[in-house]
Amino acid sequence: MMRTKAPSSFSQRVDQLRRSPAFFFKSRPIGLEVSHLANLKGVTTPDHDHHLGRIRSVFNARRGVTRRVLVLPLLVLTAFALGGCQLPTFGGFRGATTQAKTESTLWSQMVILGVGVSAIVFVLIVWAVFRYRRRDENHIPRQFSENTLLEIVYTLIPCVLVGVIFYATVIAENQIDAVVGKPAEIINVTAYRWGWSFSYASSTGVSQNVLVQTAAEPKALAQSALSSEYPQLVLPAHQTVRIVLQSTDVIHGFYIPAFNFSRYAQPGVVNTFDFTTLGTGIYRGQCAQYCGLYHAEMLFSVQVVPQGTFADWLKSHQA
């Protein structure tokens, strides 16, 4: 490795290396760059070369740069995804029920994973776009078209990722879908064009004949979902309630964004699921499945109130 003019500073050496065809057309890994510098200083040892040779045989040094770029963020992100208890929600809802919180955590982990993988691919693209621009019209690049090891590696990595995502999701989904034996309240939700009715039907008899319905005739009211024009689904805080969902005419979607949940109300079908509420609050709800003229007006609100207030409300609404 003789050079006619010795580079004077570290950055010059790196520069010289970068310009040398050996660097890009053989494209050595970053690890090798250091050894080159060592070579220039004349401190190379047989041991060192032997060691490098072994690394090359294991990792096929041509892809060293890519490898380095790939591994580090993955490690950081995995640590994030597994260790963090209060992950950022990336614009989603933190979740106002136990089920929604499970969903939210899964969503955050998946966004981290997704953004991590995208970032790696993006770096590869940007590198390719700028580094491999045509500079010399007559240069013909090396005509390689295969790399079996690389192809196997980038088939296996997604397989592992899919395995991880699938496992995590099945666990979360089972928690979300689980129903309790004896819910605190059973609410029959009926969707119709264009409104909702909520009828409370707990076995204790307290809530018999409590019915909340859309007050207004279908028209473009153009108000917020929290307006009293639309029906309110009142729920007790820190309780598990059961929703029994049906439709009388066409398919509707029972969608509460803050609960990270939606389910079809479909004629001829009864869908049943549980919500375990957390603290009190008021949330928007809306039909999420297109159902005709006033689809945009099929709003409702969800009000989670303390248990005492809930009992009083039930009494006051009994017919």
């Binding site: 969503w107 998946m110 691919v121 993006f122 999701t169 979300i176 939606s262």
Partner: peptide
């Protein structure tokens, strides 16, 4: 295409995920 398809592809994986789909379906 490369840029757009990263975004389209990754968000597709979220939607294939049942719990996330219950949040995003129909929105």
């Amino acid at each position: 295409f490369l840029w757009n398809f990263i975004i389209g592809g990754v968000t597709g994986i979220y939607l294939s995920d049942v719990p996330a789909d219950q949040y995003f379906h129909g929105d």
